[in-house]
Design a protein around this nucleic acid. Structure first.
Length: 645
RNA sequence: GCCGAAGUAGCUCAGCUGGUAGAGCAACGGUUUCGUAAACCGUAGGUCGUCGGUUCAAAUCCGAUCUUCGGCUCCA
């Protein structure tokens, strides 16, 4: 009998008889590993432990502690969910049921049977019941014909459609208990590993993600090998909900919405406005330093402007309708973009190659019709302000300018303590070219320049096809909110199209007309979304330079209100944002209210402090820090509260 | 826009299978003048999202509509 050489992750290798299973290898390594093994990676491919290995290979055995182990675990859990659904809802048809970052889902067609959140508990119970049977997941190679026959008989048109797109010879079924699914695997050894089950929510999802297709019922769930881990996960979810910017925005009186004003139109309350305006000041300063010129353009623009830019053609039909002048019937659009305005600013006079790059920056408020179901707190609204700018440069300056913008974006992120962003290289979808305008050559060039710029700054990027803007590729900075949803913040885009459409020119050193290149960029993206993500990132405890109220002055009793007012005035003289709590309340109460509203510093003043011109300092979340002279506090605080440069 | 769920006082929530709305906090008035996370007493506050229907009677049942929430699709 022949042997195979198996190389382990630590570099050591062992020999086994050919046809050895992953499970047998695990057992030979240790009893504990065998008990916890969920799947195996063989030469980079994740497989079932039960599959045989017939050639030399590098392997890695996955347990719950590996992403690959969780993947197989949740994938298998999706099958368990399907088995439970089939038992409870005869005739149910199945779409797809993949593992996801946290758990798994299954898209199902329940026909006319109603299904809501209330039904989840019942399905959970069934899943646990089935899991306890320790049903083994078994793999079976089937021919395309057999596969079609099986699901044809079952009447599951979704599976038939999936099989249709598969190649004969590469089709496998997996069985567990009485359930059979089309699946490429891999799966965990048996259902007994699944000890804790929670179905999280039920939602609609279009079959194959296409709006034109039927909407299926998507059931999201998560499972764990231990009940305790499930409890920890649910607790973590609760904690994340407390950071939700919508909840904190209301509690901290940062912003509000009103049905009467209109959905998706945020109202910035005084405290939220402080945060927003400080961010704006920060970016203004950084931009001036980086050679930008602030400009201002109106909130509406002639429809012709957007016809020229191509936005009307691309987005006009599902946008806010144009507004018209009463007599002439001229059409204007609520500004959905700032770039066309800036193009016209570029055109006010002939430009020389010597004055490029020109950088027009504007905190431009734009209005876009977002589908009603899309609106989400401050992250997705119908009116928002971009920290927008457009750089007009020569073709030979593109890369350098792009790198400068990357530096600016990273400077902003760093100053705000954002670490967990990813840089996404948003490219065009080569399979769907009519979504885009412009020649291939220019697209290729732009995509290459962005990649080179990112590389030069050592920025790791993830390329995603089909995510480009219609006029050019982008480098997008993505962050996750408290609940794990991904949002785009900053964006940098290279654009060869708008300069053409607006016929932008400059006179080169050769005395000939040339076309400039545009770079669109917004480090924060929109102030609204940025503040939303910032709120969740810091759980409402803003960096000191941003926080709406930096200091609460809390007199022990009304007898010290005068001294407290004096303290507050001294703070204000030094541009420190504070307020006086002169309510007729006990100090414990004032402290509690200040703590709850996340004021970073509390100055408690009474007999002792008033007589010595001192303040007792209490830090949010930390407690009593002892007393210092008022002057000393102001000195220290002014430094702490300074805007980063 | 699509699928599903929810809307009760400023906020958080109670109100079982229909019998005409309740608590805590906040607000307001008073008492108290207080040393590091909620003083005490009292007062006021709601056409139960909106419109229509069923019924002797609707917060409760039905329909429509608006908004919000969870997803899907979309996102210049």
């Amino acid at each position: 009998m022949s042997e195979v050489k198996i190389t382990l992750p630590d570099g050591s290798s062992r020999t086994y008889p050919s046809g050895v299973t992953g499970m047998a290898i695990a057992q030979s390594i240790s009893e504990g590993l065998a008990r916890n093994a969920l799947a195996i990676e063989v030469n980079g491919e994740i497989r079932d432990l039960s599959r045989t290995i017939t050639a030399d290979a590098s392997i890695r055995i996955f347990t719950w502690n590996d992403a690959g182990g969780k993947y197989a675990f949740w994938h298998s859990s999706a099958h368990l969910l399907a088995e439970a659904l089939e038992a409870l809802y005869p005739g149910v048809k199945f779409g797809i049921g993949p593992p996801i970052e946290n758990g798994f889902y299954y898209d199902v067609d329940l026909g006319t049977q109603p299904f809501g959140e209330d039904d989840l508990a019942k399905v959970e119970a069934k899943m646990i019941e089935l899991a306890r049977k320790n049903s083994v997941y078994t793999r079976q190679d089937v021919s395309k014909k057999e596969a079609l026959e099986f699901f044809g008989k079952k009447g599951d048109e979704y599976k038939l459609e999936l099989i249709d797109g598969l190649e004969d010879g590469s089709i496998t079924f997996y069985h567990q208990g009485g359930f059979t699914d089309l699946c490429r695997g891999p799966h965990i050894p048996n259902t007994g590993f699944i000890k804790a089950v929670k179905l999280l929510n039920v939602a609609g999802a279009y079959w194959r993600g296409d709006e034109k297709n039927k909407m299926l019922t998507r059931i999201y769930g998560i499972t764990f090998p231990k009940q305790k881990e499930l409890e920890e996960y649910l607790h973590m979810l609760e904690e994340a909900k407390k950071r939700d910017h919508r909840k904190l925005g209301k509690e901290l009186e940062l912003f509000a919405f009103s049905e009467k004003v209109g959905m998706g139109l945020p109202l910035w309350l005084p405290k939220g406005t402080v945060v927003r305006e400080r961010l704006e000041q920060f970016m203004r300063k950084a931009q001036i330093k980086a050679g930008y010129d602030p400009v201002v353009s109106p909130h509406i623009g002639s429809k012709a402007l957007y016809v020229t830019s191509g936005h009307w053609d691309k987005y006009g039909k599902d946008s806010f309708r144009p507004i018209t002048t009463p007599n002439e019937g001229e059409e204007f659009l609520l500004k959905p973009m700032n770039c066309p305005h800036h193009c016209e600013m570029y055109k006010v006079k002939p430009r020389s190659y010597k004055e490029l790059p020109i950088r027009f920056a504007e905190f431009g408020t734009v209005y876009r019709y977002e589908q009603s179901g899309e609106l989400h707190g401050l992250t997705r609204v119908r009116g928002f302000t971009q920290d927008d700018a457009h750089i007009f440069c020569r073709p030979d300056q593109v890369k350098e300018e792009f790198i400068k913008v990357i530096d600016l974006v990273l400077h902003a992120f760093r100053s705000l303590g954002f670490e967990n962003y990813t840089a996404q290289l948003s490219l065009r979808d080569p399979a769907d070219k009519q979504k885009y305008i412009g020649e291939d050559e220019l697209w290729d060039r732009a995509e290459r320049e962005i990649q080179e710029a990112a590389d030069e700054r050592g920025l790791k990027t993830v390329a995603v096809k089909g995510e480009a803007a219609f006029y050019g590729p982008k480098l997008d900075f993505m962050v996750k909110d408290a609940l794990g949803r991904s949002w785009q913040l900053g964006t940098i885009q290279v654009d060869y199209q708008l300069p053409q459409r607006f016929e932008l020119e400059y006179i080169g050193s050769d005395n000939q007309k040339h076309r400039p290149v545009m770079i669109h960029r917004a480090p924060f993206g929109s102030l609204e979304r940025f503040v939303a993500v910032l709120i969740e990132h810091c759980a409402g405890n803003f960096p000191l330079w941003l926080t709406p109220e930096q200091v609460a002055v809390l007199p022990i009793s009304e007898r010290f209100n005068d001294y407290a007012a004096h303290v507050l005035q001294e703070l204000k003289n030094r541009d420190i944002r504070g307020f006086l709590d002169d309510r007729n309340e006990k100090i414990g109460r004032k402290i509690r209210d200040a703590e709850v509203s996340k004021v970073p510093f509390m100055l408690i003043v009474g007999e002792k402090e008033a007589s010595e011109n001192r303040v007792s300092v209490r830090k949010h979340g930390k407690g009593d820090e002892g007393s210092v002279s008022l002057a000393e506090f102001i000195e220290l605080a002014s430094k702490d509260f300074a805007m980063p440069l």
